[in-house]
């Protein structure tokens, strides 16, 4: 018995050793020369292999960086400006700093606001629904709620809220790689400029139906009334196809538009509560002041209140 075991061990190790030698020589023989800078650059990339740069994996991007003379169009959204400047240093090429971006979900059609009119029973992905029909609600533009965006996110920066059946982006985790933007068949997700304290003002709707139809399908749809356009002092808002869009660069986060929107389509996120009118007792004011649907307030908002109020 023991001899058998001995034989087994010996022969297996022999096979292993021979294979290792063959592999070693093969590796030597087929080694190709590669620019050592590619490795160097790759080391400085985040190794997320998310494809956010438009190349398959970080190595592909590193190669592109090394090979192209002008790298100002290449950008790693995950590593951001820090990574890019390091890369530029290694390669001795110039890069421009870019505004960091973050994904925002431009739909607020939770079941409470957007009634379901039929029920979908099929493969559970948004692309299949959108290929089939306009979706479970009367709004053919809104979120289908099956989480294709969640599925593609490599950074666990997006999840489905069970109650609203809408995706939620975790700002700190989002690298703006754009995978979710590509995955969403309804083009609901947009990469917008990241502001101080993660503050955001945007039209959370992509419905291009006429006001009446949009409103009937969803309480919080943009009806294209242009009230926001009128109050905006910075020309940041345009209405096209009955849908308002706020330019993230022009917008100065003044919040005027939020107040005038009759359907509460414009969201303000991570802002402190508005100034309290002195006549009102504090407790009551707080209840009233919270804007109708501002979401995602952070804990540190309390600090802001202390500082400012």
């Amino acid at each position: 018995m023991s001899t058998i075991i001995l034989f087994t061990i010996i022969s297996l190790s022999a096979i292993g050793a021979i294979a290792a030698i063959i592999l070693y020589f093969a590796a030597q023989k087929f080694k190709v020369f590669e620019d050592p800078r590619i490795d160097q650059v790759e080391e400085n990339l985040p190794a997320a292999n998310c494809g956010g740069c438009g190349y398959p994996g970080c190595r592909g991007f590193a190669e592109a960086l090394v090979k192209s003379d002008d790298i100002s169009d290449l950008y790693c959204p995950v590593g951001g400006n820090d990574t890019m400047s390091k890369v530029a240093e290694i390669l001795g090429k110039a890069v421009e700093a870019k505004d960091p971006l973050v994904a925002v979900i431009r739909c607020s059609g939770s079941p409470e606001h957007r009634k379901k009119v039929n029920s979908y029973d099929g493969a559970s992905t948004c692309v299949i629904v959108s290929g089939l029909y306009s979706g479970e609600t009367a709004c053919q533009y809104g979120c289908h709620g099956l989480g294709d965006c969640v599925e593609v996110c490599d950074f666990e920066a997006i999840y489905m809220d069970k109650e609203t059946e809408l995706p939620v982006v975790i700002d700190d985790a989002c690298t703006a790689c754009g995978a979710c933007v590509k995955a969403c068949p309804n083009d609901i997700i947009e990469l917008r400029k990241k502001n101080k304290k993660d503050r955001k003002i945007f039209v959370s709707c992509v419905n291009m139906d006429k006001g009446g139809i949009a409103k009937k399908a969803c309480d919080v749809a943009c009806i294209g009334c242009k009230a926001c356009v009128k109050v905006c002092a910075y020309d940041a808002i345009v209405v096209e196809n009955f849908l308002a869009y706020i330019d993230p660069v022009k917008c100065k986060l003044c919040r005027k538009c939020v107040e005038v929107c009759p359907t509460n389509s414009i969201l303000e996120i991570n802002f402190p509560p508005r100034k309290v009118k002195p006549a009102q007792p504090v407790g009551e004011a707080e209840a009233k002041e919270t804007p109708a649907r501002s979401t995602g307030e952070k804990e540190n908002d309390n600090n802001i209140i202390n500082q400012e109020g």
Binding site: G122, A123, V127, I128, G131
Partner: peptide, 12 residues
């Protein structure tokens, strides 16, 4: 399994 659902998607 929703075979054709996904095959259709792949096809497109």
């Amino acid at each position: 399994l929703p075979l054709l659902d996904y095959i259709r998607l792949g096809k497109s």
